[in-house]
Simulated scan of single mutants.
Amino acid sequence: MKILKTFTVLAVAGLFFASCGEAKKNTEEVVETEVAEASEEMAMSEVQETPTIVGVAAGNENFSTLVAAVKAADLVDALNGEGPLTVFAPTNAAFAKLPEGTVATLLMPENKSTLAGILTYHVVAGKFEAAAVIDAINSNEGKFTVDTLNGGQITLSLNDGNVILTDANGGTSTVVIADVAASNGVIHAIDSVVMPK
């Protein structure tokens, strides 16, 4: 009888430990699954957290005039597209350098196509970060010409280490902030609006 009780106790203990081991194993599997799912969600949210070119500009008060112009020219979808694009983005101060009343006139619905032409003159297909731009300038005897989305060209050069844009009319602008990352390209802030012919 004593042997039977001992055997029963051992059997119950064995079942208890076996079930504990199984529960621990199940718990570990659940935790591993939850960690994997959380990591996947974080990776997805990181991808979603990087805004597009328009999103980056909209999130920076120094580009409020540019954002208003992009909306007025109906270019939001184009600049939110897959890309990649490189945008030489005039700051509010750059737009303020234009003759008085120019921005207000350009924002009028009847000037939508003119405004779109000016804005697309600031956009280049492809992603060109500052290092690549400087390499291209140095590899081409100090000047590198890029084709813009409006069909015109801008000449890039260096002056005291700064990238200078020269437009079709001989006007110049300086890159003041380089390599602002966006999910569909890169933005370089410039201090003057460049103009197509």
Rank of each mutant, 00 (worst) to 15 (best):
V9H: 01
A125V: 03
I118Y: 00
D147Y: 01
N80W: 05
N184V: 13
A94C: 07
T52Y: 01
V123G: 04
V193I: 05
A168E: 11
I137Q: 04
S19F: 09
F95Y: 07
N184Y: 04
N184C: 07
A131Y: 00
T172P: 10
N80R: 09
S139W: 01
V103Q: 03
T50D: 05
E129N: 11
A136Q: 07
N62C: 11
I3K: 11
E141Q: 14
E41R: 15
P90F: 01
G21C: 06
N111C: 03
E110Q: 14
F144Y: 14
I3E: 12
A181D: 09
L156T: 03
F88R: 07
I3H: 07
Q48L: 15
E22N: 15
P99V: 02
L115C: 02
K5I: 09
L119P: 06
T52C: 13
M42K: 13
Q153K: 15
G117H: 01
V133F: 04
L4F: 03
A96T: 02
I190D: 06
E82F: 01
T148Y: 00
E49Y: 06
T166A: 11
T33E: 12
A58F: 09
A189I: 11
T8P: 04
D167K: 08
D191A: 09
G14L: 13
A89M: 12
E61W: 00
G14T: 12
G21Y: 06
L106G: 05
N62G: 15
E28D: 12
V186A: 05
F95A: 05
N80F: 06
V35G: 03
I134W: 00
E37K: 14
K2H: 10
P99L: 02
N184Q: 08
D167L: 09
A182R: 12
S192A: 15
F7H: 11
V124H: 03
T120V: 02
Q48C: 02
I190A: 09
A116Q: 05
T166C: 09
Q48P: 05
V31C: 04
K71C: 03
V163G: 04
D191M: 09
I187R: 11
V70P: 08
G171V: 07
A168M: 14
V76Q: 14
L75P: 10
A68R: 07
T148M: 05
V186S: 10
G152R: 11
K127H: 00
M1N: 12
